[in-house]
Write a protein that binds this DNA or RNA. Structure first.
Length: 809
RNA sequence: GCGAGGAUGGCGGAACUGGCAGACGCGCUGGAUUUAGGAUCCAGUGGGGCAACCCAUGGGGGUUCGAGUCCCCCUCCUCGCACCA
């Protein structure tokens, strides 16, 4: 006999234990049977789970349980993105080892997730800080290194001169070190890169061809991030020298208006040019002050546009003019060639720069119906027009001139059409401890040598002093650094950089298919069965970072022969952020809501239901726990009607009204779950419950009651399981088939038609469903309210069958 | 600054394709029940107006028989910008 009172505290642990002991969610490949791989982005073990996690994993859990009930093999794994900076910071602050801190957090968070009743196959769990995991990305790295796809180059990093260490952007606050407030500097350091740009074309093309199941928003962001642009390379000879400066421009049509040149301050020719022209001091001062620009100001573009003359001139190849060569702080070495031909008349930034330094402005494009004059213009003209003062190209529309001038340059051997990408190679070097060691050995004789496969993994040593000062922690551990060269056997030094944690999260979805595989990163048979991920769910903030890296890694693993798929994720669903008091929930802001407290008070089913009911998954959610009472009340209503029915289980016959309502609800709930509109699916179940409450208890059929329990089961699995067993079933709700609605209960003999006059609602009429258009029109016109708003004959009558009649007065 | 989104009652949201704006829930109001409190059940609830009606989807314009939905301009908010994960 079921208790009349809903008591989640008793039933939730009971069913969680049951699922765990019966291995309810453990799956294996079953060739020939349909599979569904459902994955939520793996969490960083930061301490305790927060509402964002609850939301993310509940969304996934409903989808997983729904698919299970559709009879499909569902892979639904969970694990930990366990390397990263917070563990190292905690170690420095509290003198606890990052490994200990991480594992304690994992234990806490795992227990919290289990209290939510999530349907994970815990037998596949792993943490990315486990050597059995990261050894495989070390292997991949060595293979990429051998192919030249992993390489080292100099690049700038944030450097705190007091702590004598590298800082992440996040550790720089207002241009100062977060620990000691020293002014942060930019320093050049040799770092490891992965050649993701080799895959730029494929990553771009596959967005169109293979990611139809991704939100358009994310696809657009990725296209922009990869940033393919067409343009031309052009060589400018340096006056009085054999050397040339190559620029990339998207606007070769403005070449005749190029009056000066801007170089990135890190451009390799800047120092040499300045030295040759006696501008050394000015340039050094400029480089130093550019290095001090705050990262935040850089992002906002709120820093002062600044430049210095190098003393050198180059020659415009089409006009022969001498163009002064400047170093400018807004030119990026990472994009194009690090050199920009400046056309002040037709580029706003160049215009402002020219005004500031008194440089020539030359109009070469005249827009239709306007006459630009360099002397009077107050802003650059960046739009279209016809070329003027442009040699043989004068009179040509500028669109056409883009290709024509590029072709001409190619003929002359001084450039030509090309494409460039905004996408940069991926810097994976971190001068930090808590990460996967980069498996390279530096030998004075042999150079950088990959650690041989037999010697992998390069295990991260445990006994390392962490102070937050003095550079890379691993570099300070002699027993780690000193080793023998694998090639010549002479004394050599290990690489002390560790890998960006995005490397771990780039391939974990593949590892879940065969987490224990010890012969390679993955078992190809398991990958063939489970991959790709059918549904991936995670925050929109990963739209470009992680979600490009994991696509890239899949392509790498394919080209290394480990797998034979091109894309890891078929369908993506991006959930919105969870806010409280207008800000993203975070410990530092003190606006976190602890899910545990809420589970303790109301039960996991209530917390799950509420987090889904509050907003659709894609939308940001402003957290307000007022409404949680409503979710709890609703579950009590469900409980009472089912338990109440069981008190008087006389099986009433199924009446027509009830069957109509039942099938309408099945349709709505099923379709809404499929499109991830869980809030409206829950609303439909609420309406169904409200309907059942309008019936006499004795008029409610067993079918109506059982349908309710089944429909609620993905959302509130514990309560559903308890009620289902109480109804006399011996199997879990998960083993029941998801109900199918019958069309015949959805059609009706009559329908309501809206009657509008000039688009304004004036009346409703009830008509037979099979009414003719003529008859419908006649009935609508006959309405009293229509006549009242109509003087004379209508101009027009619009009939939308099944919906409305609009009479245009 | 660049790129991508968003804005609907007192609150969270609904309206999937241009067709009844505000489903469902919270809150509030009234009633029933109760020794009382709580819980529960029922009804009402965008604004104005006695009513007929009128006004309302961040602001302004436009397209259309008809616009929350499509187009243009503006305001505010959020996310990302490559070392937070």
């Amino acid at each position: 006999m079921t208790e009349m009172t809903y008591d989640p505290k008793t039933i939730e642990p009971k069913w969680q234990k049951h699922w765990e002991e019966s291995g309810a969610f453990a799956v294996d490949e079953e060739p020939g049977k349909e599979k569904y791989y459902l994955l939520e982005m793996l969490p960083y073990p930061s301490g305790r789970i927060h509402m964002g996690h609850v939301r993310n994993y509940t969304i996934g859990d409903v989808a997983a349980r729904f698919r299970m009930m559709e009879g499909v093999k569902v892979l639904h794994p969970m694990g930990w993105d366990a390397f990263g900076m917070p563990a190292e910071n905690a170690a420095i602050k509290h003198n606890v080892h990052p490994a200990q801190w991480t594992h304690e957090n994992i234990d806490t968070m795992r227990a919290q997730l289990k209290r939510l009743g999530l349907s994970y196959d815990w037998s596949r769990e792993f943490a990315t800080c486990d050597p059995d995991y990261y050894r495989w990305e070390q292997l991949v790295f060595t293979k990429l290194f051998e192919r030249g796809a992993a390489y080292k180059k100099e690049s700038p990093i944030n450097w705190c001169p007091t702590c004598n260490t590298v800082l992440a952007n996040e550790q720089v606050e207002g241009g100062q070190c977060w620990r000691c407030d020293s002014q942060v500097e930019m320093r050049s350091m040799s770092q490891w890169y992965l050649r993701i740009t080799d895959y730029a074309e494929e990553l771009l093309a596959d967005i169109d061809d293979k990611l139809e199941g991704w939100p358009e928003r994310v696809r657009t962001m990725q296209r922009e991030w990869i940033g393919k642009s067409h343009g031309a390379n052009i060589d400018f000879a340096i006056d009085g020298s054999e050397e040339k400066i190559r620029v990339f421009t998207t606007r070769p049509d403005t070449l005749f208006g190029a009056t000066f040149m801007s170089l990135a301050c890190t451009h390799p020719m800047v120092r040499a040019l300045a030295k040759a022209n006696g501008q050394e001091e000015a340039i050094e001062a400029f480089i130093a002050r550019t290095a001090k620009i705050d990262h935040q100001a850089w992002l906002e573009g709120s820093y002062e546009k600044d430049g210095v003359f190098t003393g050198a001139y180059c020659i415009n190849p089409v006009t022969g003019w001498k163009m002064p060569v400047y170093a400018a702080n807004f030119v990026l070495m990472e994009y194009g060639t690090g050199a920009v031909m400046a056309v002040p008349a037709h580029d706003q930034r160049d215009f402002e720069f020219a005004k500031k330094y008194g440089l020539d402005i030359k109009v070469v494009i005249q827009p239709d119906g306007e006459a630009l004059d360099a002397k009077t213009m107050t802003a650059a003209w960046e739009g279209e027009g016809v070329l003027v003062e442009s040699g043989d190209f004068t009179g040509m529309p500028n669109r056409k001139a883009i290709d024509a001038i590029a072709a001409d340059l190619e003929k002359q051997g001084i450039g030509g059409a090309t494409t460039t990408f905004r996408l940069k190679d991926w810097c994976i070097s971190r001068q930090r401890y808590w990460g996967a060691p980069i498996p390279i050995i530096h030998c004075d004789a042999c150079g950088a040598v990959a650690v041989p496969e037999a010697d992998l993994p390069v295990v991260l040593p445990m006994d390392v002093p962490l102070t937050g000062e003095g550079g890379s922690p691993l570099a300070q551990v002699a027993s780690f650094v000193n080793t023998a060269c694998p090639k010549c056997g002479k004394e050599a030094r290990r690489e002390t950089d560790t890998m960006d944690t995005f490397v771990e999260s780039s391939w974990y979805m593949l590892r879940y298919t065969s987490p224990k595989c010890d012969t390679g990163p993955v078992d190809s048979k398991a990958v063939r069965y489970w991959m790709p991920v059918d549904q991936y769910i995670g925050g929109i903030e990963h739209a470009v970072g992680h979600l490009i890296y994991c696509r890239y890694f899949t392509k790498i693993l394919r080209d290394l022969g480990f797998i034979d798929i091109d894309e890891p994720v078929k369908n993506l669903m991006t959930q919105g952020m969870v806010y409280k008091d207008g800000a993203k929930m975070s410990k530092s802001k003190g606006n976190v809501v602890d899910p545990d407290e809420m589970i303790e008070k109301n039960g996991a089913d209530t917390v799950r239901l509420f987090s889904l009911f509050a907003a659709p998954p894609e939308k940001d959610l402003e957290w307000n726990d007022k409404g949680i009472e409503g979710a709890y009340r609703f579950l009590q209503r469900v409980w009472r009607i089912v338990a109440g029915w069981m008190e008087l289980p006389g099986d009433a016959g199924e009446c027509e009204d009830e069957l109509r309502m039942r099938h309408r609800t099945i349709k709505k709930v099923t379709e809404d779950i499929e499109r991830y509109h869980f809030n409206t699916a829950i609303a439909a179940i609420m309406e169904y419950v409200n309907f059942l409450y309008t019936l006499e208890r004795t008029d409610i059929s067993r079918g109506a009651i059982e349908m309710l329990v089944i429909l609620i089961s993905p959302f509130a699995p514990h309560a559903a399981e308890e009620l289902w067993r109480a109804l006399g079933h011996t199997r879990s709700t998960l083993e029941e088939a998801w109900p199918v609605f019958e069309e015949k209960w959805l059609v009706s003999d009559t329908m309501t038609i809206i009657v509008q006059v000039s688009g304004k609602l004036r009346d409703r009429i009830e008509v037979p469903s099979d009414i003719s258009e003529e008859e419908l029109k006649a009935q609508a016109l006959a309405c009293e309210k229509v006549q009242a708003h109509l003087n004379g004959e209508p101009r027009k009558v619009i009939v939308v069958p099944g919906k409305l009649v609009n009479i245009v007065a």
